[in-house]
Simulated assay, not measured.
Amino acid sequence: MDAFAAKPYSAADFRLRAVAERIDDDEEYGDHRFNPQHGPLIRRTDLRDAAVLVPVVDHGDEATVILTKRAEKLRNHSGQVAFPGGRIDPTDPTPEHAALRETMEEIGLDAGHIEIIGRIPDYVAGSGYRIAPVLGIVRPGFQLTINEHEVDAAFEVPLRFLMDPANHRRDSRMWDDKEWFYYDMPYGGRRIWGVTAGIIRTLYERLYT
């Protein structure tokens, strides 16, 4: 199958784009890309390693992406929309392993339903993490089991919506007496913003421009 045979927002087309992606070690994405004035605060030497799964569900011509709403009772980033994922443990041999493990722990999505197809460059978050976004195609027919200690809900958003730059709104807020810029992508009554929106924007810039 070539790029012209696959519909532009299908899982098949996403796979072709991901396989063609080449990561240059010198290329670094993250919150500093749109907050250059805070670069030293973001690109620190003590960054913690994490991985997330970008789970693209194969629904034929119109793929979707699974996102979660973090539990309100969590101490950090409570209630925020996020990709399934978390810290890379010393026992994780690869970021891919960590992303799959965390996905299973958070939403019960079994690795048997997931085909890992690649990665995009690491994303450096202002919260002190270097995040490896792992790209995966999810085969339909799965059942989710929500870990209520970590996640309040899981839901799907059309890939077409997320990869449309018209839905990537730039906004800012004051934090610690400094203005911070971020992307905001409201969808279906939920607010996709911050690091999650930043990773989505990176996905758009790397694969869809």
Rank of each mutant, 00 (worst) to 15 (best):
E148C: 06
E72P: 08
L100T: 06
K73Y: 00
P158A: 04
G39H: 09
D177F: 08
P40G: 06
R169D: 00
T68K: 03
R139P: 05
M163L: 14
V134A: 04
V151S: 06
S10V: 04
A63Q: 10
E27H: 08
Q143C: 01
Q37H: 13
A51K: 04
D122I: 07
D152L: 13
T64C: 00
A132W: 13
R22V: 10
A154G: 09
I131S: 11
R201D: 04
R70G: 05
K73A: 11
H38Y: 14
R191D: 10
I117V: 14
L100G: 08
M1R: 12
V54E: 06
L144C: 11
Y123R: 02
R44T: 15
E179R: 15
F4M: 11
V124S: 00
H38V: 10
Y208L: 07
I107Y: 05
E62K: 04
I199H: 02
D24N: 13
E62L: 07
I117M: 03
L67H: 02
P158S: 03
M185V: 11
S172T: 10
T64K: 08
L41S: 09
E115Q: 13
H32F: 14
P186K: 08
A125W: 07
I146V: 12
M1P: 12
P95V: 03
Y9M: 02
G85I: 00
T196K: 04
I88Q: 12
E205A: 03
R43W: 04
A71C: 12
L47M: 08
A20T: 10
Q143F: 03
R101D: 00
P90H: 06
T209R: 15
A3V: 14
I23D: 05
G198Y: 10
L162Y: 04
S78I: 05
R48Y: 00
I116R: 02
